[in-house]
Simulated scan of single mutants.
Amino acid sequence: MAELYATVEESARLLDVACHRDTVWPILSTYEDAFSHPAAVVAFRVATALRHAGELDCRFRTHPDVRDPYAVALSHGLTPKTDHPVGTLLADIHDRCFVESHGIDFGVVGGFKKIYGAFTPDDLQEASKLADIPSMPRSLAENVGFFARHGLDDRVGVLGIDYANRTVNVYFNEVPAESFAPDTILSTLREIGMATPSEQMLKLGEKAFGLYVTLGWDSPKIERICYAAATTDLTKLPVPVEPEIEKFVRSVPYGGDDRKFVYGVALTPRGEYYKLESHYKWKPNAVNFI
């Protein structure tokens, strides 16, 4: 764990991001078993959006035996207890679905942020059924028709709960190939009120393997949609890499012989921004999400 902390600290320094031991070390020590597990997956991520400036995110997968990593976070003081429905959502998901593994997301500045629940590839969930979970944002139910029209309703592979921003990410697996065609992307974005995409976004979208949407409790609308492409060589992507991300690639270390990236573009009603996840430790067939 000391080695991983040193890696996080050095990576943040190279990116001119403040890294405080009092923020990072408690998270690493709380989930120490996850990092030492043979199937451990650890990744670093940066984004070009203003709200992400000055931050380096770290993501890791927990051991499947950790049934409720949110309860663990609460008991160790990593996040405050809340009466908001976001605080009961993970438990409610477990009551209705088999969750194969979890992921934890934290920032070296912002601390504990998110928990992801991943379903098995042969047991993808239906958005229409997940919408019946009492603590789920009602915006999921409001958009079930949209998911069905695009062949996504029965393809939910991961749910990401953002405790800091009180939102939920819904990740879709085995997305129909036509969803990534430029004309389809354009019509999809118009349908849900997102900004007109750039040509760069459309080129990256054609190479995407999956997409996710962000939903909240305060609005029935989809807040954000993200398309993500995976590669072991960024030069093979059909788009230039953003300057902030290029600096990130030069600065963040990785373990093993191969390097893996997940490059995503997120669309909001106000515009688009880019995110890059670089895997420090990864295993073949590991769940991809950004």
Score class of each variant (00 low, 15 high):
residue 255 G to R: 02
residue 241 V to G: 09
residue 43 A to I: 03
residue 248 F to I: 03
residue 10 E to D: 15
residue 34 A to P: 09
residue 263 Y to E: 08
residue 146 F to R: 00
residue 2 A to G: 11
residue 220 P to K: 09
residue 209 F to G: 14
residue 213 V to C: 12
residue 117 G to Y: 09
residue 249 V to Q: 13
residue 99 V to D: 08
residue 231 T to D: 14
residue 109 V to K: 10
residue 247 K to S: 12
residue 131 A to R: 12
residue 147 F to G: 05
residue 123 D to T: 05
residue 53 A to M: 10
residue 204 L to R: 15
residue 154 D to V: 02
residue 218 D to G: 09
residue 153 D to T: 12
residue 238 P to S: 10
residue 7 T to S: 07
residue 176 P to A: 14
residue 79 T to W: 15
residue 91 A to F: 01
residue 207 K to R: 11
residue 222 I to S: 14
residue 88 T to W: 06
residue 240 P to T: 13
residue 277 E to I: 00
residue 86 V to A: 14
residue 160 G to L: 07
residue 269 P to A: 04
residue 83 D to L: 05
residue 123 D to K: 00
residue 289 F to C: 10
residue 247 K to M: 14
residue 167 T to M: 13
residue 226 C to Y: 03
residue 119 F to N: 02
residue 172 F to V: 14
residue 82 T to V: 15
residue 52 H to M: 00
residue 138 R to G: 01
residue 58 C to V: 11
residue 203 K to F: 04
residue 169 N to S: 13
residue 254 Y to H: 15
residue 192 I to S: 04
residue 143 N to W: 00
residue 15 L to P: 10
residue 80 P to V: 02
residue 120 T to S: 15
residue 157 G to Y: 05
residue 42 V to M: 00
residue 210 G to S: 12
residue 60 F to C: 02
residue 204 L to K: 12
residue 106 F to D: 13
residue 167 T to Y: 12
residue 77 G to H: 05
residue 222 I to V: 15
residue 279 H to V: 01
residue 44 F to T: 07
residue 243 P to K: 10
residue 218 D to E: 15
residue 182 P to V: 14
residue 185 I to Y: 08
residue 4 L to K: 09
residue 68 D to V: 03
residue 90 L to M: 08
residue 166 R to C: 08
residue 69 P to I: 09
residue 53 A to V: 02
residue 281 K to Y: 06
residue 115 I to C: 13
residue 261 F to M: 06
residue 197 P to I: 05
residue 137 P to A: 01
residue 213 V to L: 11
residue 33 D to H: 11
residue 250 R to L: 12
residue 171 Y to D: 06
residue 147 F to K: 00
residue 197 P to S: 04
residue 221 K to H: 04
residue 82 T to D: 04
residue 276 L to S: 01
residue 180 F to M: 09
residue 289 F to L: 10
residue 81 K to E: 14
residue 163 Y to V: 02
residue 199 E to P: 00
residue 201 M to F: 14
residue 27 I to A: 08
residue 261 F to Q: 03
residue 119 F to A: 09
residue 42 V to T: 12
residue 193 G to P: 07
residue 288 N to Q: 05
residue 8 V to E: 00
residue 205 G to P: 05
residue 92 D to T: 02
